[in-house]
């Protein structure tokens, strides 16, 4: 069972308290009704599913109930960092080269 740091509660809590909520940094277009089929496909269906670093959303469901963002390595299953919803994608990751 993983430990996940909730950026709102500011502490590490066991995975049992959290729910994954899919890939992060996919903003809903403000003019969604007008976008093309291709753009809707990219927004709604296409996901990265990377081997390595993934940016994803989690919810501290059985805690503060806030959604937040996390960076996780899908190979080692280690959390690199977590940050609040709405904050930009971190440009530098602690402990990750390249």
């Amino acid at each position: 069972m993983l430990l996940i740091r909730c950026p709102y509660c500011e502490e590490e809590r066991p995975e049992l308290e959290f729910r994954n909520a899919g890939e992060a940094h996919i903003a809903r277009p403000t003019d969604i009704a007008a976008i093309s089929d291709d753009d809707f496909e990219k927004f709604f269906f296409i996901r990265q599913n990377p081997k390595g670093i993934i940016y994803e959303r989690w919810r501290h469901l059985h805690g503060c109930a806030r959604f937040f963002n996390a960076v996780r390595d899908t190979v080692s299953d280690k959390f690199v960092m977590t940050y609040k919803a709405g904050e930009p994608k971190p440009s530098k990751l602690p402990g990750v080269s390249k």
Binding site: R19, A21, R59, L61, A65, R66, F67, A85
Partner: peptide, 13 residues
């Protein structure tokens, strides 16, 4: 409830 919270917190904050 989760669906509503998700939109309220992340898309329509």
């Amino acid at each position: 409830m989760n669906h509503m919270e998700d939109y309220l917190q992340t898309e329509f904050p």
